[in-house]
Amino acid sequence: MTTIEPDPADLEPIHPYSLARISHVALRAGAVLAQSGASVRVVHEGARMVAEGLGVEVLGMRSGYASFEITLARGHHSITRMMQIGPHGVNHRLDFAVRELLKRASQGDMTPDAIEAELKRLQKDTPRHPPWLVAIATGAACAAFGRLLGSDWLSFGPVLAAASIGQSVRHLLLGRRFNVFVVAAIVGCISAALGGLGARLIGSSTTELAMMASILLLVPGVPSTNAQTDVMDGYPTMGSARAVTVIMIMVFAVTGLWLAEFVLRIHT
């Protein structure tokens, strides 16, 4: 007579939180970190802290540029889930606030609901500098870049103004969910044209440098170093994706600059 052995997984005790619920919170935490500019190592470590704090084992994780997957296990059960990652940006204060939250979650005294509610609160309430200040600061940074590149003092003001206007336009267009590469081309053209025109009108002898400095707000500095960090940490796929994105943004930005040079008849 054949005896049917029960599946060991069916004999396990009932747990307060399902694997699906835990995976969702872990993925969400990782996605927020990724969108704030964290490297893949930090994203994976953050998701692992959430999962282990909630008492499950992480069997594996995989990060792509636009998605994040995790496999969790508890006893004989395992689950694999994936989540979309939104637009990548850099938000230092949110990044580190989320890291602090995940350190608390790893102690094991937070529920998935509490972690998720705190994540949402941080995304909503973490302070940001006002857009006008970001615009002026970015303009000042580009003007400083111009000085470092060798542009004259006369072009300092026009570059500051042009890059500030460019940053305002970028803020406006990205807020309306325009394609990030198209935005790079538009902002590159506007900033370079305004910077070059202003420098020319004011009598600067370094108009071309002023145009170049005016678009340097578009250079993705953090992603370009994150790309190397990811490769060094053993995530070449993500590193390569970041590098390609950096190159694409720069190609579009320079296309905008080229258009501005054509409009201002710089090389004709």
Binding site: V90, N91, H92, H129, G139, A141, C142, A144, L217
Partner: peptide
């Protein structure tokens, strides 16, 4: 330049 980009990076 570093502080200006620091503001952009929040």
């Amino acid at each position: 330049a570093a502080a200006g980009f620091g503001v952009l990076f929040n």
